[in-house]
Design a protein around this nucleic acid. Sequence first.
DNA 1: AGGTCATATGACCTGCGGGTCACATTATAG
DNA 2: CTATAATGTGACCCGCAGGTCATATGACCT
Lengths: 220, 220
Amino acid sequence: MPKQTFLNLPEEKRETIMNAAVEEFAEYGLENASTNRIVKNSGIAKGSFYQYFEDKLDVFMHMLDVIEQKEMEYFKDKHPPSSNMDTFQYFRWMVKTGMEFGLAHPRMIQAAWRVLLGEGFYYGKNLAEYRQKTKQALTTMIQHAIERGEVDPSVDVELAVMIMETWSNAITTYVLNEGIQQKNVLKWMRSPKTQETIDKLLYVMEYGLRKTESEFVSKP
Amino acid sequence: MPKQTFLNLPEEKRETIMNAAVEEFAEYGLENASTNRIVKNSGIAKGSFYQYFEDKLDVFMHMLDVIEQKEMEYFKDKHPPSSNMDTFQYFRWMVKTGMEFGLAHPRMIQAAWRVLLGEGFYYGKNLAEYRQKTKQALTTMIQHAIERGEVDPSVDVELAVMIMETWSNAITTYVLNEGIQQKNVLKWMRSPKTQETIDKLLYVMEYGLRKTESEFVSKP
DNA sequence: AGGTCATATGACCTGCGGGTCACATTATAG
DNA sequence: CTATAATGTGACCCGCAGGTCATATGACCT
């Protein structure tokens, strides 16, 4: 957690600093991010940095908090999906809305995912909390789906969660890797071809998951 | 490519150095690997290192080559799968055999995948060749499956390849992440529960893919 | 034997990293 | 207007990184 000194700062200054941090982490990841550069790009003195944060990890964790908050606001602002959607439609809505958020704040998404996906080995312990949140949400979702009869009750919930997590990670990675090479990321993301690819990916997951566990266990 | 000087070295010495490199990359990834440590751990002088390799990336690429070669030998030694297997059975065999290789050389797999999965953003250009090889193999596989009538001809080959790639990445990540926390990785990997989880993951993919493209395109 | 060429060595260079600290500046209170 | 507490600052410390280079070693040839 940032020190009180940072929280006392005027919002404008805090934003300047966090923007520099986002830029840095998006560009270099966590391990190779340089506090010196963050300091230089946000126009504050080195000493001030250490009066605001414990260390590099501290800024990063705070950045995650800020992003999470922004994303939650974004989701709330969007018209919530009609309540008679089934679970898979809901998941699809979530993935797509998440992507839209990514369009609005590409560097944030890049900064967060780069580290979450790529440097999980090291920082696993610190990031566990974040993964846990997602996992919890997905678990609730699956259980809900089972209650509604959309998914066979014999399905292994934990496994289904893992699959959904993997799938949304795969899509994010895809968007990040492909999108990064495009001149116009936004245009590329909104193009029918990209949208179609993502749709297809989601349908493959859906059809895989709809099969009951008993079916795919007894097959070999 | 390593310099001639390195290739002239007695095999024993070359192995010592490569082992140190594997250890280093497995532990620290590419970006944070230290040539100084590699040098210290392989008992050679700093200067020698630069007489063998251009730089850090050079050792790493060479390491990939060595691993690839070892893995190919491993696959050859295993009894090849019966020729009347269908494509999905073959893919399953490949994934499992790959895992077995990982059991035999855990640090190598860790060193390679850590970087391939985690630091792809930076080194994308250098690693593209390796990804391309896998992609090519999978493409051939899918096309073969279509010819054999195991997969609907209307399936988007490129997409199917991406899905298979994602899936085997997901499994590797799973094994790496979970396995790393276990006291006895080998025991964990061989346990029925782990094997079952992997089986289920593969079946989910299979059922997802068996659906024809037309089906899942027209759904929404 | 001397000469030559590939190989081996580690002290040394420069640059940048994270982090500290004595001091300067500004806000707050009495 | 002064005393005190809170913030701000950048030169400075140490460690380690990647990389170089003059010199030492020794195998092989004539």
